[in-house]
């Protein structure tokens, strides 16, 4: 057991998270969550809205503490911001007052790298995410997709061992999303961090991941974990037409659907009540 837990990069054991609601009650967002992610593993998390996906990521990143249970990264219990972690937030979090170059160079600059070296690395990463030539723009002068690329470069420049992504592409149109998925896989192959990728989109989850975790409607618990043994490298635009993909999709969707329906029934009940 203990040997097993040190071989994983991310390890959640019996994790629950409770919030106090504005009316003074207690809301349980996550209940008794157990899962682990191996080094270099790409793990997708799907589940209905409000089931605690974002909350899970904040626990792993160290922005929040679990109410009960333990979160370990690299065998060390999380306390403070987890070192070696990258986080792409659900909402845009690039700094609007920094140019694209300064945004990407921010991580190394915060960590004490000289401006020259940081800018050099930032230029390199901008080239890799296809934004060479946009160094001097401000975020409001970019498209939504370009801002996501900036955020991606901003995270990857720190060469994280763990990359947390919270529905990073959900605001993009379908075509851009599958292009970004391809680019993400490409970049991930280069540095191979362990990834937790939260998404609403089951197709995206299967395309990218080695394993898909399905959460129940809130409070989130693990419903089932699916291994995705599709061969790599994968092509996001084509893989979804293969028979294996279609079979996996219908199998996982069968599991996910009842949770989505539960969550939906709950919200409509709340509205009509």
């Amino acid at each position: 057991m203990s040997i097993n837990s040190t071989s994983n990069v991310i390890e959640l054991r019996g994790v629950s998270k409770r919030f106090t609601t504005p009316s003074g009650g207690i809301y349980t967002a996550l209940r008794e969550l157990d899962f682990s992610v191996a080094p270099g593993e790409f793990c997708a998390v799907v589940g209905p809205t409000g089931c605690g996906k974002s909350t899970t990521l904040t626990l792993v990143s160290g922005l929040e503490r679990p109410s009960t249970g333990t979160v370990q990264v690299d065998g060390v219990p999380v306390s403070g911001i987890t070192p070696g972690v990258g986080f792409m937030f659900q909402n845009d979090a690039v700094f609007p007052w920094k140019s694209v170059l300064d945004n990407v160079a921010a991580g190394p600059r915060f960590r004490g790298t000289s401006r020259r070296l940081a800018n050099e690395a930032a230029r390199d990463w901008l080239r890799r995410v296809g934004l060479a030539g946009f160094e001097d723009r401000f975020p409001h002068q970019l498209s939504g997709g370009m801002r996501k690329r900036v955020a991606l470069a901003q995270s990857l420049i720190n060469e994280p061992r763990v990359l947390l992504m919270d529905e990073p592409f959900s605001a993009l149109d379908v075509q851009t999303r599958s292009i970004m998925a391809d680019e993400l896989l490409n970049l991930w192959e280069q540095t191979r961090p362990a990834v937790i990728f939260v998404t609403h989109d089951l197709e995206e989850a299967i395309t990218l991941a080695d394993k898909v975790i399905v959460l129940t409607a809130g409070p989130g618990r693990i419903k089932k974990i699916f291994r995705i043994d599709l061969p790599r490298p994968r092509n996001a635009q084509e893989i979804r037409f293969t028979d294996e993909f279609v079979a996996l999709y219908s199998e996982i969707w069968e599991t996910l659907r009842s949770e989505v329906e539960t969550a939906y029934a709950r919200t409509t009940k709340e509205v009509s009540a």
């Binding site: 922005l63 972690v85 986080f87 937030f89 979090a93 700094f95 921010a106 991580g107 915060f110 960590r111």
Partner: peptide, 11 residues
Amino acid sequence: NLLSNARILGA
């Protein structure tokens, strides 16, 4: 969000 991002990036 921006504060969280800065902290994660190492600020």
